[in-house]
Each structure stands twice: as C-alpha cells, then as structure tokens.
C-alpha cells in the first residue's frame, strides 16, 4: 500500500526541466527513540522555483517532514538529497519560519533579524545593513529597535519572515506561518509573501509551506501535497496551474477549491 503512495508522489512531479532537483527525499522514515513510527516512507522531488504547499490533518507529521527537510531532525532511514548531495545536519541553505514566531524576547527586531548573520560570524555593520534591507522589505522599517512584546502578532511574523530571508536561503520552509494570526492579518501577510516571491527581489525562489487550510493552499501553491496521519505519508500530489495573482472570488479558484475539498474528503 505504501509503495503505491510513493509512486503517485514521485511520478507526479510537474517541472521536469532540471536534471538535478533542488530537493529529493528518498524513502525517508522517522521513528522516535521509543520506536513509534511517525513518518514515512516518503519520497518526494522538489524542483527549483516551486511553491509547494503541504496540507493534512494535525498529527500527519507535516512539521516533522519540514524539519527533516531543513535538517533539524535526522531521518531514521532513507536519504535527504539537496542538489544531489546527501545532507546530514542542518542545511544552511534553508531557513525556517515558525507558527509560534520563535523570536528572542530579549533581542530587538534588528538583533532578531540579524541573528543568523551573527551566527555566521559577520561583523555588525554588514549584518545590520543586510538585515535592514529585509526589515524594509517586510514593511517593518521604523521598528528596528522595538522588542517582540511591543509588536502585534502580524508584525512578529514579519520579523520571523525577515529573519529567515536575511540568511538568503535557497529554500524557505514555513510551518503554518499564518495559523496564529487573525484572518485579516493572515491575508495581508500572504499577499506580501507572494509579492516578495513573485517580484524576485530575493535569492529564495523555492518555498515549502505547511498549512491546514485548503484555501491557503490553493491561493499560494504551484503544487499541493496531501498528507495522511499515522504514520505520516504523502497520499496525493496535485498541481495548481491557476494564473497569479489568484482571486479568491473567481470561478476557477472556486472550482479548484471544490475539487480539492472533494479529493481530501
């Protein structure tokens, strides 16, 4: 049964042009030390430039999948290949955005955003000038000296996004980045993320985003991966070919949404 699932997921990759994919997962599985099998086997190919949205019920291992891709969690078996190279440990060309923002409360916006560059040993002027660029890009100019507790949820997530972009990753991983925000703020931030990505102002051109909102998936993704729980596996891989910018009220959007809902249920 699981081999069938792998077949659908790996054969359905929609962008065939690049010979070496940006990311390839080969039959990865993940078990906890107490031997509870939580993920896989999963095989997956992500091409450069794709916006992949992973959707599934809670407990399906979406977050765990994202953490194995970034190298924060190691796999129990299988391989994670990045540009054809086997990755062990944290992949420095990836960055992660958290649902919980994960900001350092004792650091200012500027210090939070520049933290990844500090870790890479860059001097202060260099890291601050680079960080300022991304702070401006997410619309937080003027807040460089504010502390996280002085910011609204939406602004906190902008800091999280700016921090991830500042390390100029090739692959940006986002773990339910808009789930902790109110609908209006989430919608604004989604638009802004798309603007930044589509305008090619950033090095990052590949995004993997985890969500539990079908609408968000259809709004953002080039491709939707559907996961099922216990153990977490990919049970569906759907391309979304709607033109951008996508209008929530358009007929095509509604049709695609209905189609996906029927596939999921």
């Amino acid at each position: 049964m699981t081999s069938q699932i792998q077949d659908t997921s790996s054969s359905a990759s929609v962008v065939p042009e690049s010979p070496v994919p940006l990311l390839e997962l080969r039959e990865i599985t993940k078990s906890f030390p107490n031997r509870i099998h939580i993920l896989g086997p999963i095989s997956l190919v992500v091409q450069e430039g794709e916006f992949v949205v992973v959707i599934g019920p809670s407990g399906a291992g979406k977050s765990t999948l994202l953490r194995t891709i970034t190298g924060l969690t190691d796999v129990t078996s299988g391989e994670v290949l990045y540009r054809g190279q086997r990755i062990s440990g944290v992949n420095p060309r990836t960055a992660l955005v958290f649902q919980s923002f994960a900001l350092f409360p004792w650091l200012t916006v500027m210090e939070n955003v520049a933290l990844g560059l500090e870790a890479r040993g860059l001097d202060k002027p260099t890291r601050y000038s680079r960080a300022r660029r991304y702070i401006d890009m997410v619309g937080l100019d003027g807040y460089e000296r504010a502390y996280p507790r002085e910011l609204s949820g939406g602004m906190k997530q902008r800091v999280g996004l700016a921090r991830a972009l500042t390390v100029e990753p090739e692959l940006l991983c986002m773990d339910e980045p808009f789930s902790g925000l109110d609908a209006l703020t989430a919608s604004n931030l989604r638009e802004q993320l798309l603007d930044i990505w589509l305008s090619k102002q950033i090095v990052t051109n590949t995004i993997i985003l985890v969500t539990h909102s079908v609408e968000e998936a259809v709004l953002l993704g080039d491709r939707i991966l559907l996961m099922a729980a216990a153990p977490g596996t990919i049970v569906g891989d759907y391309p979304i070919t709607l033109d951008r910018p996508r209008k929530r009220k358009s007929l095509q959007f509604e049709e695609k949404l209905d189609e996906l809902y029927s596939l999921i249920v």
């Binding site: 944290v90 500090e118 870790a119 890479r120 921090r163």
Partner: peptide
C-alpha cells in the same frame, strides 16, 4: 521553549554566540 532551540539550530547559533544570545 523548544522553538527557540530549534531556530537557534536552524540559524547555526553555536558555541559562545549561543550562550550569549540564547
């Protein structure tokens, strides 16, 4: 919080910088 450890790992915050910042 676990997420602060994770983001520190993700950003490569190690050694002295990790002590000082986290």
């Amino acid at each position: 919080p676990e997420d602060l450890h994770q983001i520190s790992n993700s950003l490569g915050l190690m050694g002295r910088t990790r002590w000082r910042r986290l």
